[in-house]
Write a protein that binds this DNA or RNA. Sequence first.
DNA 1: CAATCATATACCCATATGGGTAGATGTAAA
DNA 2: TTTACATCTACCCATATGGGTATATGATTG
Lengths: 112, 112
Amino acid sequence: MARAATTSDVFNAIAEPRRREILVLLRAGERPVAELALELGIPQPGASKHLRVLREVGLVRDRKAGKQRVYGLDARGLRRVHEWTGGFEQFWNESFDRLDAYVQDLKRERQE
Amino acid sequence: MARAATTSDVFNAIAEPRRREILVLLRAGERPVAELALELGIPQPGASKHLRVLREVGLVRDRKAGKQRVYGLDARGLRRVHEWTGGFEQFWNESFDRLDAYVQDLKRERQE
DNA sequence: CAATCATATACCCATATGGGTAGATGTAAA
DNA sequence: TTTACATCTACCCATATGGGTATATGATTG
């Protein structure tokens, strides 16, 4: 088997840099595809593909606006990621101490 | 070109479900590879591969312990993800209203 | 209906993965 | 140093991507 489909999971959806950029851009408001493509500096089809992934995991929604299709942010899905990482908050504070202990171990090993 | 290397980015590293499981398991304390593989229900080489990715992005560190190699959590890298998603906090609260407005739009379109 | 603009899709490619298996590498114990 | 145990690597596979280009689909306007 191969890897899980990007399209099925918010974690995978935001693993792509361009897609994160899109989400950031949409914080400033809705945008039609062409404008997003321009701001990202990628061809329109590429933008459409990324938008599709984001749409399928529910991070953006689209709305018809005349000839254009305007995409907007629906950040609710990011909450899950925020909470998951938040579950490690106490650990990244502890990590300095742990890392320190680790360094001590390395020194000890080297001397042996 | 193809996609960016998983190994170079924390966002990509945690996009894999198994790797997230590993991180969660390590919250309870350090673990040797075999134990992690057992708890994940995957063959040891698979665990080693995932651990390697996590190690390369700095989310875990390893320590020699006799014949075994013990892996421990270094959650500092998750902070970046937490903060990035946190940048959308105000939006996922707003999203309900926006979604509502969106639904209104749809109704309007349908009636036209 | 024809012409045009805005997107979405269909393909084609090269490559990164994740999984499984067998063998290499390291380390500890007999 | 020979044997046994714990991991890591090297391969082989099938597949999911992301990128680029050409084309289909939709919608607006003349």
